[in-house]
């Protein structure tokens, strides 16, 4: 083809940036994982770091926290989002104002939101405990105790992400042809049956999409952890995620080799999740 060459000009900017700012750093990170490095001094240690992190209890803890948070995020967010989206889809007034309100948290910077929520979670003067005490409970320690800190983060994430999921579900709901419901009504189906026999199955692709994006996003949780419990995820590392661990290893403890090794691990996990999910998705289609 005579004109073939100029197509390369079209993809050149994207390719150039990818090579320089993603691929090259990725390879470099891979190299770093075989070293002991403070960035000032770097020595080759082969597979040492891989052996090391395999027995690192802190990393295992971070991995557990990350999976825990991701799992409970999805478990709380998706059903609630679907429920609210269904209500929004059926309500005949004030739909836009509601939609705006639910979406506001997603637009809010996590850093700023985390500052506000830290105050709201305060065990002594926070608004949550004030409310609990109003109802006659003792109040919780929220972010100040390992037994409730994860719960606090799950609640925070629920608030921050729900609007996004509601929107996606709403868009999905609007693709379902109303005739389906009408036909079901003629067959005498009640609301619950319609919901479980029509809505949920037809929204499966949407749910799968949300699970994939939610899992990948969840694996990369960092900002709120950093703001709530510093890079170690206090209290007592109870909310430290893998990305926080990578951050701590490098920028705090100056062991960039360990950080890089954990980063490779995270990369592999995310790749595995994506591949599994995509396969699942393709089979569905």
């Amino acid at each position: 083809m005579r004109k073939e060459r100029h197509w390369y000009l079209f993809v050149a900017p994207a390719l150039g940036l990818f090579l320089l700012f993603i691929l090259y750093p990725l390879v470099w990170n891979f190299y770093l994982s075989f070293t002991k490095s403070s960035l000032i001094r770097t020595t080759w240690v082969g597979l040492f770091q891989y052996v090391r992190i395999a027995s690192d209890r802190t990393l295992l803890n971070a991995l557990y926290n990350t999976l825990y948070l991701t799992f409970f995020n999805l478990l709380t967010q998706l059903p609630l989002a679907l429920l609210i989206a269904t209500l929004l889809n059926e309500i005949k007034y004030a739909r836009t104002p509601f939609r705006i309100i639910y979406f506001l948290p997603y637009v809010t910077s996590i850093v700023v939101a985390a500052i506000i929520w830290t105050y709201m979670f305060d065990p002594d003067e926070g608004i949550f405990n004030w409310f609990l005490r109003l109802l006659g409970f003792k109040g919780l320690l929220w972010l100040s105790h390992p037994s409730t800190s994860k719960l606090s983060v799950v609640i925070f994430n629920l608030w921050h992400w729900l609007g996004y999921q509601i929107l996606i579900y709403l868009a999905g709901l609007q693709t379902i042809p109303p005739q389906l419901y009408e036909a079901a009504e003629m067959d005498g189906a009640n609301s619950l049956q319609k919901f479980s026999k029509i809505t949920i199955p037809l929204l499966k692709p949407t749910t799968v999409f949300l699970v994939i994006t939610g899992t990948i996003g969840g694996m990369q949780t960092f900002q709120q952890i950093y703001m709530f419990g510093t890079a170690v995820g206090n209290p007592g590392r109870s909310i430290q995620t893998v990305v926080a661990y990578i951050y701590e290893s490098g920028w705090v403890l100056q062991h960039f080799g360990i950080g890089a090794t954990a980063a490779v691990l995270l990369f592999l996990i995310i790749m595995a999740i994506t591949v599994v999910n995509v396969k699942f998705l393709i089979r569905e289609k």
Partner: peptide, 19 residues
């Protein structure tokens, strides 16, 4: 200097009576 992060996270756990 660098061990203080370890100390911090462990003391935090201790104060939570978790250890």
């Amino acid at each position: 200097t660098e061990g203080r992060m370890v100390i911090r996270s462990t003391i935090s756990k201790l104060l939570a009576l978790d250890i």
